[in-house]
Write a protein that binds this DNA or RNA. Sequence first.
DNA 1: GTCTATACTAGGATAGAC
DNA 2: GTCTATCCTAGTATAGAC
Lengths: 209, 209
Amino acid sequence: MPYGCGVTKTSSPDRPAPPDERQLRPAGRATRAAIEEAARRLFAERGFDASVRAIAHEAGVDPALVIRHFGSKEALFLRCVDTSTGIGTVLDGPLETVGRRLVAYFLEPGRPLLRQRYLALAQAAHLDQVREEMNRHTAETYVAALAPQLTGPDRELRVALAVAQLGGLLNLVFRQEDPLVTAADTDRVVALYGDAIQHLLTPDAAEGP
Amino acid sequence: MPYGCGVTKTSSPDRPAPPDERQLRPAGRATRAAIEEAARRLFAERGFDASVRAIAHEAGVDPALVIRHFGSKEALFLRCVDTSTGIGTVLDGPLETVGRRLVAYFLEPGRPLLRQRYLALAQAAHLDQVREEMNRHTAETYVAALAPQLTGPDRELRVALAVAQLGGLLNLVFRQEDPLVTAADTDRVVALYGDAIQHLLTPDAAEGP
DNA sequence: GTCTATACTAGGATAGAC
DNA sequence: GTCTATCCTAGTATAGAC
């Protein structure tokens, strides 16, 4: 997810590295898992506004345990929000039409999960670690996949700017709910905005109808 | 400011419209003014994180007075943050180069105020009223100024999408501080991203070097 | 009308007993 | 590992003094 959404952590640097999570007591494992499951659900539903207390209640445990196990609300959030949403296949297609494909992918209806995750991340973007993860994800997913295929100067910069463009669109359609855009034909937005993104990646290519 | 920043209110719908602010008691006026001045300073410095209590302390009054006078922190914020930053002159120039001019305007160094205001608004964007003001500002400033000059279909939609693009760039350079972009030559970003914006506004125009 | 004092609710985080 | 009790900060509301 652009702007960038990333965040797919499997270990937190906050806890002083227990030798292996699978060696924890069964009770501890179950509690941890219950907290994490509840957190995933509530973060998805309410974004970063979901309170630690509400998550604890949902998991049937004491609020203090949430902090005890995950260090902080921010660390728990980083652990729970991820965006492994199959964007890879979109990026793997032909470079000449990736702009429209990206826009179409994110605007495709029936993807409430994408929207939920975007809103949750956007809401938490004031936290430094969340922004760092976004940048890391942008670099690892988008820049790594597209920059080598580009020609001309500033290949990495152009991909970063294209991702920023995509983020601007998601902000508009997912957060602002601008009436001009929500009422517009999706295909038109895909064509217009997709070509604008494409223009940064392959400036010389001709455009489709 | 795009994405959109607007918010230049002079009267709040929350209070039931006192006939004229100048008719309030001197003491009341002075207190109100002190609170508002302190709020402007702290909101600019710390964004929406500036607490009501800190604002009250800065103004030398009781925290309850802040709420008493302005209704809520959100209402005070809406009253204090504005973006009348002279974007009008940028929009008034020739349409054919407005994309690059817009990017250059926002990337121009020595404009810490622009950045401060953007960050404050982005941080408060989870509030419905703030987002509404952003949309209103986008419509009144950008769409109103540019859409009539465009040719072809979807004129208003294309301006809204161009503003979204601009918002994506500001998010990148003001919030993310992506090393790829902060290290890049400003002129390159102006050319690349400005042309991408221009492409939505005047798709047929040729591009500069 | 304007301000002071107090208090309510909610949130995140921590200390220390079991 | 788990829980109880507690602390701190925050936004907001209200009663009552001037």
